[in-house]
Amino acid sequence: MRAATTVPPTQHDSPETAGAHAPRPAGQPVVELRQIRKSFGDLEVLKGIDLEVHKGEHVVVFGPSGSGKSTVLRSINLLEPPTSGSLKVAGVEYGPGLPGESGVKKGKPLDLRRSVGMVFQSFNLFPHLTALENVCLPLRSVRGVKRDEAEQRSADALRRVGLLPRAAHFPGQLSGGQQQRVAIARALTLDPEVLLFDEPTSALDPELVGEVLSTMREVAELGMTMVIVTHELGFAREIGDLNVFMEDGVVVETGPRGFFDECHNPRTQKFISAVL
């Protein structure tokens, strides 16, 4: 199989996956990419990506560096608008659309970004604001929450990631792991439909990876819909309801839980054995 959309949900109900693994949910996906293409000048970096993300699902995207993983995530919130193809979030079209479907009413990028959260590899906290203010700023300016309530909710969010005692610290006073946990709190507080993670632990010293992964695990347990680009295949194996292997701008292979032991494509197998 090459694309998530071409696989009917029932196919996962085959005897070897039923029971142990939940079938892929039916119904309207939270995120739906169809034939997404993206070029930078002459260089085509996404060559027709199909992907469906359902409510509560944890999708792992992995593959060699330069294969287009970040670009896929960044096209989901239109930080990189696709050159062509359809991008639907909660049923609303935000992309250029498919050839036969022109004339579909398009949503505004601002509305899209208000329902999609993102956690960056380099955290991207605002260095001139305290941890609390980092969480508070979007809550006030995007959701229009009043100051007292926004501060209260920001404090709650920091407590959830275990960083309330650091609320008055500035990003420069926090470790990388702590900064990333604040970034997760900042994204979570806006209550997104889906949370995108672009290699959230790649910029961290090895001893700080664990704390960020365990925060992500807790977010997953809350039922958050997540798309995670990561090289932490151990974590991916544990959390991925749907696993997507990318190479050279195409989805090579996708699979459900257990994928890391059952993948068929030799390129996927080669990559996994090289990383694990």
Binding site: L79, R113, G117, M118, F120, N124, V142, R186
Partner: peptide, 8 residues
Amino acid sequence: EAGLALGM
């Protein structure tokens, strides 16, 4: 980008 991604 962080600001945009947050919907600001």
